[in-house]
Computed example of a mutant assay.
Amino acid sequence: MQVQVKLFAFFREGRFIREDKELPTGTTAGQVVDDLNIDREEVGVLMINSRHCTFETVLQEGDIYAIFPVIGGG
C-alpha cells in the first residue's frame, strides 16, 4: 500500500521531509517509526490524515502520516 510519510523538525536530518512509501498491509504507525530508526521516546505527536493516532494504529492505503518530535523549552 502507498502511504505518504512527513517528518518534522530534527527528524528530517539525514532522512527526508516528505516521502511516498510502499508499505505492507497491516503496517502500524510504530513500525514506520522503528524502520526510520527514530527513538519512540523522542516522538511527541503522531498524526494520520491530520488526526492524532498511536503507535498501534494501522495505516491504510493513501494515508498521510506525520511524525513530530517532542518539543522542549521554557
Rank of each mutant, 00 (worst) to 15 (best):
15 R>E: 03
15 R>P: 04
16 F>K: 01
16 F>Y: 07
16 F>D: 01
16 F>I: 02
16 F>R: 03
16 F>G: 04
17 I>F: 11
17 I>W: 11
18 R>I: 04
18 R>Y: 09
18 R>P: 05
19 E>R: 13
19 E>K: 15
19 E>L: 14
20 D>L: 13
21 K>T: 02
21 K>Y: 13
21 K>H: 06
22 E>G: 01
22 E>T: 11
22 E>Y: 02
22 E>S: 12
23 L>S: 10
23 L>F: 06
24 P>M: 10
24 P>L: 11
25 T>I: 09
25 T>A: 14
26 G>D: 02
26 G>C: 08
26 G>V: 06
28 T>E: 11
28 T>D: 06
29 A>H: 09
30 G>T: 04
30 G>I: 03
32 V>M: 07
33 V>P: 07
33 V>I: 09
33 V>M: 13
33 V>R: 12
34 D>P: 02
34 D>N: 03
34 D>W: 03
34 D>A: 12
37 N>E: 01
38 I>N: 11
39 D>N: 13
41 E>N: 09
42 E>D: 07
44 G>A: 06
44 G>N: 01
44 G>R: 00
44 G>P: 01
45 V>N: 02
45 V>H: 05
47 M>I: 00
48 I>H: 00
49 N>Y: 02
50 S>I: 00
50 S>D: 03
51 R>V: 14
51 R>F: 05
52 H>N: 14
52 H>G: 12
53 C>H: 10
53 C>F: 07
53 C>P: 06
53 C>Q: 06
53 C>S: 13
53 C>K: 03
53 C>G: 09
